[in-house]
Design a protein around this nucleic acid. Structure first.
Lengths: 208, 208
DNA sequence: AACTTTGTTAACCAAATGGTTAAACTATAT
DNA sequence: ATATAGTTTAACCATTTGGTTAACAAAGTT
């Protein structure tokens, strides 16, 4: 039974470490707290993952490998541009509702440790903007959307989707609503954001 | 001369603390490092600000009191809506270029400590959305902009302006540009973001 | 059954860290 | 000049923290 046990504790640790690291960050997390959450002895953390740094990196990579496919939905996917924007906002917001701390965690740790991005970038499947750039250029040439730099459009899409989660505590206070109401606002954004973007870039035909 | 001296060291400490806290966060900051940066003995930190927590709160409040007036430019100011959006994006982006770590710091610490928002909210001059809400409703009634919930529009404006800074390391990697090129992209956003928003909400007359 | 490998723990350790103390120093007021 | 109040420091201290060690337990191998 030991292999089963081993795998279990190893993933137990990872699950516990995810929770703690994502809520408190690398600097705020305590190995003891992770051990407690995983219901094991602190020394076991070091048995499976040699150091706090390595455990953190395992958590970080795991988090990023969940985030990357989401980003690829805008970047590498050749469905129609508008359709894509609609699908992305819908699916991204659902994704973050499932993993509330994840995007904030990734972005925060990248800010504290910008060199870290290089490690990610060198790995396969790191999202790239190339395809998206072409698609937007084409749509402009075809007169479907007004001229806009693909990079700017991409940044806009990402900003409108990610920030409402990262800025939640601040936005809740400014908009002056409680958690439930804010949840409804977020829920509405599943369609609202896509409409907002498409409205901005779409060239209206006589039909519409 | 002692009162002058006192004020100097006290503000020296605050300046040093700002830098360290804003870059490393509450958990990652070290009192010794702050003392070194301020070129004083560590005990002096405790002489002027009793504890790390209090020093942190002084820094945080100071940071927020810089940010609040920026937010009030969208929320409490009764110039024309479009003009306002243009001015805000311009001035906000300039503001962050001057204080690169500030918005990230505020948002990050609010995430780690959401109860903290209550302290801010209870203070005077805490930005409120009321005025903005009316203005947007009016603009909709007058047929100037298409129907949109004021809260959603506000969240969009803030997201498009703040996120490009908070997400910089990630966005730089995704868009695949170096710091200089990213700086140019940000510079372009001073007008680009306002255009993007106004394009999305403005109802076109026959004139245009 | 003897032995080897893997998993787990309690006890321990050195370094880092926030905070304190008492003494020294500086400048102004008397 | 001297008392006084505010400022600054060196030396300490207790606790926390990441990490190690040695012993033990359980399972697999021969």
């Amino acid at each position: 039974m030991n292999k089963v046990k081993a795998e279990n504790t190893e993933t137990e640790i990872l699950i516990a470490a995810k929770e703690i690291f994502q809520q408190k960050g690398m600097a705020g997390a305590r190995m003891q707290e992770i051990a407690d959450k995983a219901k094991i002895n602190k020394a076991l953390l070091h048995y499976y993952y040699r150091s706090k740094q390595l455990l953190f990196e395992a958590v970080f990579k795991s988090a990023f490998s969940l985030l990357a496919p989401q980003l690829n939905k805008v970047l590498n996917d050749d469905t129609d541009l508008f359709e894509k924007i609609r699908k992305f906002t819908e699916s991204y917001i659902s994704f973050v509702i499932k993993h509330p701390y994840l995007p904030n965690f990734v972005i925060q740790e990248l800010n504290k440790n910008p060199e870290f991005v290089l490690k990610l970038q060198s790995e396969k499947h790191f999202p790239s903007i190339e395809k998206f750039r072409l698609q937007v250029s084409d749509a402009i040439k075809q007169g479907i959307i007004r001229p806009i730099e693909p990079e700017q459009l991409f940044i806009n899409i990402i900003s409108l989707n990610i920030f409402p989660f990262i800025g939640q505590p601040l936005l809740m206070a400014l908009v002056n609503v409680d958690k439930d109401s804010y949840g409804k606002i977020i829920e509405n954004r599943k369609t609202e954001v896509a409409d907002f973007i498409i409205n901005s870039i779409k060239i209206k035909t006589n039909e519409n």
